[in-house]
Design a protein around this nucleic acid. Structure first.
Lengths: 308, 308
DNA sequence: CTGTTAGCGCATTCAT
DNA sequence: ATGAATGCGCTAACAG
């Protein structure tokens, strides 16, 4: 009987339904500790914005933060697995551990959304984030806006002590691919330098001799910019990622030319919004939400920009 | 008594409230006729997306379209003024007529949201759209990515028969301002050409002799691109607006270099979302929502991009 | 003007 | 299994 009613174009009133249900929807938010990490702070900001907006519809968030080491991650994994909830938002920083965690969590049969980087090869879970390869490809194009036709390009990798899911490698892949696809740009030469987060003092002038462009495939562009500024080296084009305060500082000074924005706030917001739509509204939701590759110059950066 | 309860941190349950109210919220949508106008079609797409999403919360839209002439506009004005509703979404194309209409409509004391262009000098109403001046300023910067250091820049205005609110003039203002603010860019020379929509056959080779860059301050960049392609003129940088199919075609061919996207879908969506938040949720809402200046290159254009 | 009550549409519980 | 009753939190109509 009920089935027949539902067939005939019946739409459940979601307000009445949730009122009658009178239940809270608990989402576990499983992220790296955000203190001192501007990027993750923005993610949280977006998540909190969603939390406030959806509170009235019964959404409650429970946070699980892990420090940037595997021990801390494993400890948090335990807690998350034990915690009873309706949905999970998850940022998989440590690849192998995250794969293992996902495998375990899947048994619970609870919707999972991944943000920032996607480790789910068979696309079982939802993903909100950027296409890392394509963003590198775009960076290649941006590097090709040359003042001279001859260009020496330096790819400068400043990596974290503890290695994590390597989005930046996909970016570099994409970067080279751009130049492979454009064989008319024959005059471009490439070199690479890798240093650790802790070894910033290793920067020296020799590294930049003859260099026209620097591509920093993560958020550390400001480190290169600061060094070049301190040594009064001008005319080097810098391309980086993420609107960290320090990056913006050098963008405004004209030292950094391009930043590709990942919209961390929007990522966080969309992650929660996905779970909300799926669980509360019970709507069909797109499984993958790619964040656009937003090119930020000095001229289109606005601090008070509203997301969503 | 009730007042005291409300004081003490009481939050009304908006679901129960709206269930009890059992009322529809009617929004009047007052726009130019969108047939054959891709930009306005996108606006409608965003509006419709919002309509579907908010339908369950009692939102109903009533459309009022006007053709691109003042007679049709005036006729629609009458209908809109007579129509009884809770909120208004309005695209003010004809400046003077729109000002008059607004003045009249204000008597109704119904929330108004303007999209696309803002004619409300004293900021009484909400606005969703771009900062036209700043977008021109950005276009200036994009023009400055020169292959050579000497540049002859052509500002190519292809205007509509009937003049409307002239967003493109503000863009040109911003464009020149960029070069005024950067006196190190002394080698840039400027010229302007204006033709009417109907006089496209007036394009000729002479117009482009010695030109390195063309700035088209509205969505007609494809007209210039098509002409240059047909005449095998290469190496001219073209900067324009809006992701029309024809613009995208030449972007992908590498004839157009940059397009500034106004995100018409997002504009439409946010316009309705504004009214929804204000009237249904009774939340405080920001009065002005600037759409980011999105720079689109071949490498970061994705057809299936999802907004909001 | 304050206090009470019916009912908005649905899910859950209890009774059939 | 199916049907009827209760209540989710609120608003509007009504009664005192």
């Amino acid at each position: 009987m009920n089935a027949i009613i539902e067939q005939y174009g019946y739409k459940r009133n979601i307000l009445a339904s949730n009122l009658a249900l009178n239940k809270k929807f608990h989402f576990a938010v499983f992220l790296p500790q955000y203190e001192n990490l501007e990027y993750w702070k923005s993610q949280i900001a977006g998540i909190e914005k969603a939390a406030v907006e959806f509170h009235k519809f019964g959404i409650v968030l429970d946070y699980f933060f892990y420090d940037f080491n595997e021990v801390s991650f494993k400890e948090s994994v335990k807690k998350v697995l034990e915690f009873d909830c309706d949905g999970l938002l998850f940022a998989p920083i440590f690849y192998e551990e995250s794969v293992r965690f996902l495998k375990e969590y899947e048994k619970k049969n609870i919707p999972i959304v991944m943000i920032d980087s996607n480790i789910d090869s068979n696309n079982k879970h939802a993903y909100v984030g950027q296409d890392a390869f394509q963003s590198g490809y775009l960076a290649g194009r941006l590097s090709s806006f040359a003042v001279k036709n001859e260009r020496q390009i330096l790819i400068f990798k400043i990596t974290r002590e503890i290695e994590s899911t390597s989005v930046y490698l996909q970016r570099i892949d994409g970067f080279y691919s751009f130049f492979k696809d454009h064989d008319e740009l024959t005059n471009f030469k490439f070199s690479e330098i890798t240093i650790k987060d802790s070894g910033i003092d290793q920067l020296n002038l020799e590294m930049f001799s003859g260099i026209n462009s620097v591509f920093v495939p993560n958020s550390r562009a400001y480190i290169v910019a600061r060094f070049l500024e301190q040594n009064s080296i001008k005319g080097v084009r810098i391309i980086g990622y993420d609107l960290l305060k320090e990056n913006i500082e050098y963008l405004n000074k004209g030292v950094i030319d391009f930043l590709i924005n990942q919209r961390p706030e929007e990522q966080g917001y969309m992650g929660i919004a996905h779970l909300y739509k799926k669980l509360v509204l019970q709507e069909a939701v797109e499984n993958t939400h790619y964040i656009p590759l937003e090119i930020i110059l000095k001229e289109n950066y606005f601090p008070a920009k509203k997301t969503v």
